[in-house]
């Protein structure tokens, strides 16, 4: 049962506004004039079948894919193709396939997330961002010295999330966090995402599985053939079942 609901998060200040976003690769159009806005503290799911441009939206918003159209982050117009600008202003991408540094240690992977705001290893290691990220994933504790490439898929996804957390994100764009992960691990990851969202972080979630995405999201952007076909505000499973 889908009902529209006025959530408090539907009104606050806009964190991310995307309008008329298009992404093309050669003559292949991956995304055509997608538009949506994300309110601060909200969780938005971008759903749709595979190969319909969801990931391209995430990549383009983060500045990693060539784009046309306007992306505004906290009211500022973001320059295209400049991921550094985005990261330094608090929009952090947790990409599909994680994109870790396989031959660096887990700890190095996570501390490199701090590169967004510091050049000092000492302040990175002592920062709250890193310790908080490690608290979220206690499983990583014993593996900090291990090379990231030797971890299992689920643990690698945790490292990717921890690395994103270390960047002091205000908006997290998470692309297919559960791709190739077993059901139990996916559930655990979703619990973490929910916790992050409760702490006030804005989350943009790219997800193939709409059921899973609905557990968490205030707003759903449905993408088909590179076009945003529907933007809706169904009630979250979290709100429905939790009663709060």
């Amino acid at each position: 049962m889908v009902r529209f609901q006025e959530t408090s998060s539907g009104e606050g200040p806009v964190a991310l506004a995307v309008s008329e976003l298009s992404v093309t690769y050669g003559d292949f159009v991956a995304v055509e004039r997608a538009s949506f806005r994300v309110t601060e503290g909200e969780c938005v799911a971008i759903v749709g079948p595979n190969g319909n441009g969801k990931s391209s939206i995430a990549m383009a918003v983060a500045g990693l894919a060539n784009r046309r159209g306007v992306v505004e982050l906290f009211g500022e117009v973001a320059p295209a193709n400049d991921p550094m600008w985005m990261v330094s202003r608090g929009l952090v991408l947790i990409p599909e396939r994680r994109q870790l540094f396989p031959n660096l240690s887990v700890l190095d992977n996570i501390t490199l997330g701090c590169y967004a705001w510091t050049r000092s290893l000492r302040s990175a290691l002592r920062s709250e961002a890193v310790s908080e990220a490690l608290e979220f994933f206690p499983q990583l504790g014993p593996r900090l010295r291990q090379k990231a490439g030797t971890l299992s898929g689920g643990e690698q996804q945790m490292v990717a999330l921890a690395r994103g957390m270390a960047s002091r994100p205000r908006v997290l764009v998470i692309d297919e966090p559960c791709l190739g992960l077993a059901e139990a691990v996916s559930r655990r990851l979703y619990q973490v995402l929910a916790a992050m969202n409760r702490q006030g972080r804005t989350i943009v979630l790219v997800e193939e599985n709409p059921v899973r995405a609905l557990e968490l999201s205030h707003q759903v952007v449905r993408v088909q053939n590179g076009v945003t076909v529907e933007v809706s505000r169904p009630a979250r499973a979290a709100d429905r079942s939790g009663g709060a």
Partner: peptide, 25 residues
């Protein structure tokens, strides 16, 4: 080994896309 910039250098070679994602130019 001991500086974040040094680790960032290593990161560039390990995975250029990953490096750009965390804000390393």
């Amino acid at each position: 080994r001991f500086t974040l910039v040094g680790k960032a250098m290593a990161a560039c070679g390990e995975n250029p896309i990953g490096a750009r994602i965390v804000g390393i130019d």
